[in-house]
């Protein structure tokens, strides 16, 4: 069963078209990564799914109902972490989670357990203003897990988390999807999503630029595999006989060869035949970053963000 279905969903705010005819379906228990630069429509998409905004045209169906008109029973099954949320500084972590637990009609004890789960139990009695960015983010995550939601929407959940916490975060996501929860998350940090998300939706200027699992996206993009060979650069280049696009580098003793996916083995066999003139080979599959650049282009916006 599909937890979230969008059919030609469009959203216009005043003059700006935030979403243009987006269609996709996310099966239950899947984890979908929404990827795109700022202003690509990720947050608008989340608002449509949450029922905070209604589509100007098209249809959105979430957990079998229309999110904009669905009642409290529907919203009890949602968990949401906004991109920028600052909880009240003067409240302690325990008070904050207790408030949201009551608001969701969940026992306060469940809130305490969730603080333990995200590793905040030791700081529960401290005020939120003493929390680091990562701790605030974990508090936000704990809040989304209240009442065992069936659908979790996380807007840039891993900002401010160090690599260790990121690992723990994705472990939690994995446990949740294994238990049947559907997770939709957006991110700028693309490489970490690799192998952790089932599906990716790449957004560009309000349009869905690509949708599918990573293998599908890779196949569709047809990005070359990059093979880096070390050894006698000139000799290797001669052996390959101009068959591939080659760049010398990053140092004088290595060469980078762009190779279509289906010719990878052929190239590797040729390199193997080179014998002593090729001392080492490194094969790099296109990463999600490369895919992102392929589908979104290197717009000014994305380049600016990358520099920060």
């Amino acid at each position: 069963m599909d937890a979230v279905v969008l059919e030609n969903a469009s959203k216009i705010f005043g003059e700006t078209e935030a979403l243009k005819r987006v269609s996709f379906a996310v099966p239950q228990g899947c984890c979908l990564a929404l990827i795109g630069h700022n202003g690509a429509g990720k947050t608008t998409l989340m608002k449509l799914i949450l029922g905070l905004a209604t589509p100007t045209a098209g249809r959105v169906s979430v957990l079998g109902c229309d999110p904009a008109s669905a009642g409290k029973a529907f919203r009890k099954q949602l968990g949401f972490l906004p991109e920028n949320v600052s909880f009240h500084d003067e409240m302690t972590g325990a008070d904050t989670i207790a408030f949201y637990a009551r608001l969701k009609g969940v026992g306060v004890r469940d809130g305490e357990k969730l603080l333990e789960r995200v590793g905040l139990a030791h700081a529960a009695k401290r005020r939120v203003k003493t929390y680091s960015k990562g701790m605030r983010q974990r508090l936000g995550l704990a809040q989304t897990l209240l009442g065992k939601p069936r659908l979790l929407l996380l807007d840039e959940p891993t900002t401010g988390l160090d690599p260790l916490l990121r690992q723990e975060f994705f472990q939690i996501i994995k446990d949740l999807t294994a238990a049947g929860t559907t997770v939709i998350l957006s991110s700028h940090v693309l490489t970490e999503l690799e192998a952790r998300t089932d599906l990716a939706a790449i957004m560009r200027d309000g349009k869905l630029a690509a949708f599918g699992d990573l293998d599908t996206l890779r196949a569709k993009a047809g990005l070359p595999v990059i093979v880096r060979a070390r050894g006698d650069v000139a000799a290797i280049s001669g052996r390959l006989n101009g068959a591939f696009h080659k760049i010398i580098g990053p140092d004088s003793a290595s060469i980078e060869i762009d190779c279509p996916q289906d010719e990878k083995m052929k190239l590797l066999r040729k390199l193997a035949e080179c014998g002593d003139i090729c001392s080492d080979v490194e094969v790099r599959q296109p990463s999600l970053d490369d895919l992102y650049l392929f589908y979104c282009g290197r717009s000014l916006n994305a380049a600016g963000e990358g520099g920060l």
């Binding site: 949450l50 949401f80 991109e83 949320v85």
Partner: peptide, 14 residues
């Protein structure tokens, strides 16, 4: 402005 409104509106509260 704090972002709490967006969050609370996704809760089962009118």
């Amino acid at each position: 402005e704090r972002g709490c409104l967006l969050l609370m509106l996704t809760y089962p509260v009118s």
